[in-house]
């Protein structure tokens, strides 16, 4: 592992300043970053430690919104009663990440900004993510790769909390040298056709500071269903984050976002339109499942993700109204 300096940030402004040093990166829990340094995927000279910024690991209600500091650990987030109650999808997503050890160290911002777990990237192949100009999965081992939104890179976004945050219509607060900006969660993530080297719009000098969740409407229920290839410590093969605003038996409004199928959290607006104003019956859920996989473009070894996604969407909907 290459040697690096660790500098503690006093506040967000200080962190942004320190990030201007040559070859500096931010570190939160470090649960993934340190492994990447060991594997020579990143070789920073300076780690800017965000955990020393006071208050950045807190959850607070501000008016109708809930503000969550980016440095909150996944474990704390998943056990917070406010989150468990009103934003179940986020608590369940955080709880589904990796292992207890990783959830004790890993942060919300780190999970959202996590680099892909494509085995070509992680094994130092000279792919788009490693500064190259090729996606090795296209003709290679692509059983876990994208069926939507792929090209030129076919990675899938690895985060569990990201689909939940998009489904909750969260806002992301980003700080950079020219100050702060706020953007919708859905606008934070970027397809490879926009930038094949990265997964989001975060500039090199920018930090994801916090996220805020809008007040949930009455009758809202939400859930996160994750399909894993063993019972713990894998990323989602496919996952579904669903937020339904119910009025008795009728679904007034739905937000449905998939993980594990695309290079970004994959929102299913067409499915949401099918569900809006309807009673979720087995027939409608089946129709939603079919619509969920419309336009899927599988590679040679990930065709199974199509029936898997269709069934997961149908079943999760039915379980939510059962």
């Amino acid at each position: 592992m290459k040697s690096f300096a660790n500098v503690n940030a006093r506040d967000v402004k200080d962190a942004v300043n320190k990030l201007r040093e040559p070859n500096a990166v931010v570190v939160g829990g470090g649960s993934d970053l340190l492994g990447m340094v060991k594997d020579h995927l990143v070789q920073p000279d300076v780690l800017v430690n965000l955990k020393t910024i006071r208050g950045l690991d807190q959850i607070a209600a501000k008016g109708p919104e809930i503000h969550i500091g980016g440095q909150i650990t996944l474990d704390t987030l998943s056990h917070n009663s406010m989150i468990r109650g009103d934003y179940t999808v986020l608590a369940e997503a955080a709880e589904s990440v990796a292992t207890p050890q990783i959830r004790n160290a890993g942060t919300l911002a780190g999970n959202v900004c996590q680099r892909p777990w494509c085995w070509y990237y992680r094994n130092n192949f000279p792919c788009f993510k490693n500064g190259g100009s090729k996606c090795f999965s296209i003709t290679g081992e692509n059983q876990f790769h994208a069926i939507f939104g792929g090209g030129p890179s076919f990675i899938v976004h690895p985060s569990d909390t990201a689909p939940a945050l998009v489904a909750l219509d969260a806002k992301f607060r980003v700080a950079g040298p020219s100050g702060e900006r706020t953007l919708a969660a859905a606008d934070f993530f970027a397809l490879p056709k926009v930038n094949a080297a990265r997964e989001n719009v975060l500039g090199k000098d920018e930090i994801l500071v916090s996220v805020s969740l809008p007040k949930t409407a009455k009758g809202t229920r939400s859930t996160y269903h994750k399909v894993l290839d063993r019972e713990a410590w894998t990323h989602a093969v496919v996952s579904a984050a669903m937020v339904l605003e119910m009025d008795q038996q009728v679904c007034k409004r739905a937000r449905i976002v998939l993980g594990g199928v695309a290079p970004i959290p994959w929102r299913l607006q067409k499915v949401e339109a099918i569900l809006a104003g309807q009673q979720i019956t087995p027939e409608l859920a089946a129709k939603a499942g079919e619509a969920a996989v419309e336009g899927a473009n599988p590679l040679a070894k990930n065709r199974y993700k199509v029936p898997l996604t269709r069934n997961l969407v149908r079943r999760t909907l039915l379980e939510m109204v059962a």
């Binding site: 070509y120 094994n123 192949f125 090795f136 003709t139 290679g140 081992e141």
Partner: peptide
């Protein structure tokens, strides 16, 4: 990986 002979997992 068949093309390169690299272990992936």
């Amino acid at each position: 990986d068949r093309a390169s002979g690299q272990p992936l997992t």
